Simulated scan of single mutants.
Amino acid sequence: MRLNSDRGTQYASAQITAFAAENGITRSMGLTGICWDNAMAESFFATLKTEFYYRRVWPTRDRATREVGAWIEDRYNRRRRHSSIGQVSPVDFELQYSSETAEVQLAA
């Protein structure tokens, strides 16, 4: 997710800072004490872990990667209703937004 990340020492260490600079990597980090910077990412990962990941045993890393991706695409994006977007799924929200935007452009 392209959101501000945790400011844990493993992410803010001098070694990571130097590695990022040497390799042209721009890091995105929230400000200290601003707890809502990464609230959306925290919420997503909490949901993923609680509703899906920790309920299964993964025989291989590859299988876990594929099944997590499938869960995100099917359950999280297409079927799970989100309170922050009016109790609709992200896919339905995007479709509604696209329709409204197209109608406004046609009317103009």
Rank of each mutant, 00 (worst) to 15 (best):
M1V: 14
R2C: 01
R2N: 09
L3P: 01
N4P: 11
R7G: 04
R7Q: 10
G8Y: 11
G8F: 12
T9Q: 09
T9E: 08
Q10V: 05
A12G: 04
A12W: 03
S13D: 06
S13N: 14
S13I: 08
A14T: 01
Q15D: 13
Q15K: 14
I16L: 06
A18Q: 15
F19T: 03
A20P: 09
A20M: 13
A20Y: 13
A20L: 09
A21D: 05
E22W: 02
I25D: 01
I25S: 02
T26P: 03
R27W: 06
G30H: 03
T32N: 05
I34R: 15
I34V: 15
I34K: 15
D37I: 07
D37L: 06
N38W: 08
N38Q: 10
M40W: 12
E42T: 03
S43T: 08
S43C: 07
S43M: 05
F44C: 05
F45S: 04
F45V: 05
F45E: 02
A46D: 00
A46K: 11
L48M: 11
K49N: 06
K49V: 05
E51T: 11
F52P: 01
F52V: 04
Y53Q: 08
Y54M: 00
Y54V: 04
Y54W: 10
Y54E: 00
Y54S: 09
Y54N: 12
R55A: 09
R55N: 07
R56P: 03
R56K: 14
W58D: 09
W58N: 11
T60D: 13
T60W: 15
T60K: 15
R61N: 03
R61T: 07
R63Q: 13
A64K: 14
T65I: 08
A70K: 14
I72T: 11
E73P: 04
D74R: 12
R75I: 09
R75G: 03
R75K: 10
Y76A: 03
Y76P: 06
N77R: 13
R78F: 10
R78N: 15
R78M: 12
R81T: 11
H82M: 04
H82F: 02
S83H: 11
S83G: 14
G86L: 09
Q87M: 12
V88E: 00
P90Q: 10
D92W: 00
F93L: 12
E94T: 06
Q96K: 15
Q96P: 02
S99Y: 10
S99I: 08
E100G: 07
E100I: 05
T101I: 04
T101V: 08
T101A: 06
T101C: 06
E103S: 07
L106H: 00
A107L: 14
